[in-house]
């Protein structure tokens, strides 16, 4: 296995790195590259949205009426505050106050859970109305012909985003576990920062999703 050694500041440095700062910079660079792949993956959905909205504007207009923009706005606020507390948790790890950082991480986790709960209500409300995706679509009196297309896009976008929120929550739990074990110090906290970057990306995607899906006119 790749051996790691402890350098003079007490940081664990893996064999292929000469020192801790090179290791941290590479780690962060790697996370940014991963975020690029996430952005490119979601780009497929955004392009599909843009193309179909320009071809069938009336479907999107009618479709968005079934969405409650208040729930969307609430979710946006929830995710923005979770981004704040995520950034603050890194701030406190830098300051060495691990306990406070732990609290902020817990709050971020809580916000993630809240987001999923709100999404759960939205989904059940729609499925109850028959607005289920694809050929399970039983909503009869849609004015436009292919209303199912709008909900196809809606479920794909929010579904994939939801999966990423859950993954983010699992990563935060993993970082909290390592924090409790005392693995992080003001000189070594790349993992917290990496998970933070991923969580901010999940928030970014929702920032774009909210106006596109909920505020169509």
């Amino acid at each position: 296995m790749s051996t790691a050694r402890i350098d003079e500041q007490g940081n664990k440095v893996y064999m292929q790195y000469t020192d801790a700062s090179q290791q941290d910079a590479t780690g962060k660079h790697g996370v940014w590259l991963f975020l690029v792949t996430e952005v490119m993956m979601f780009s497929g959905l955004f392009v599909a949205y843009a193309i179909f909205k320009s071809i069938y504007p009336e479907i999107f207009y009618e479709g968005h009426k079934f969405l409650d923009w208040r729930m969307g706005a609430l979710n946006t606020v929830v995710l923005l505050s979770s981004s704040l507390t995520m950034a603050l948790s890194i701030y406190y790890v830098q300051k060495g106050k691990n306990a406070v950082a732990m609290g902020h991480l817990a709050f971020t986790l809580l916000c993630g859970a809240a987001f999923m709960v709100i999404k759960y209500f939205e989904y059940t409300h729609k499925i109850h109305e028959g607005l289920t995706p694809g050929h399970f679509f039983t909503y009869a009196n849609g004015e436009t012909a292919n209303l199912a297309l709008y909900f196809g896009i809606y479920y794909c976008m929010t579904g994939l985003h939801g999966i990423h929120v859950l993954t983010g929550m699992a990563l935060i739990a993993w970082v909290m576990y390592r924090l409790k074990k005392g693995e992080f110090s003001p000189t070594q906290y790349t993992a917290v920062e990496g998970v933070g970057l991923f969580w901010h990306l999940v928030d970014l995607i929702w920032i774009y999703l909210f106006p596109l899906l909920y505020l169509v006119s």
Binding site: L84, K95, P186
Partner: peptide, 19 residues
């Protein structure tokens, strides 16, 4: 120090950004 980007953003910058 070995921390990456060893300058930290101040607390109220975060709060202003949130606002």
């Amino acid at each position: 120090m070995a921390g990456n980007g060893n300058h930290t953003t101040s607390l109220n910058t975060y709060l202003k950004v949130y606002g």
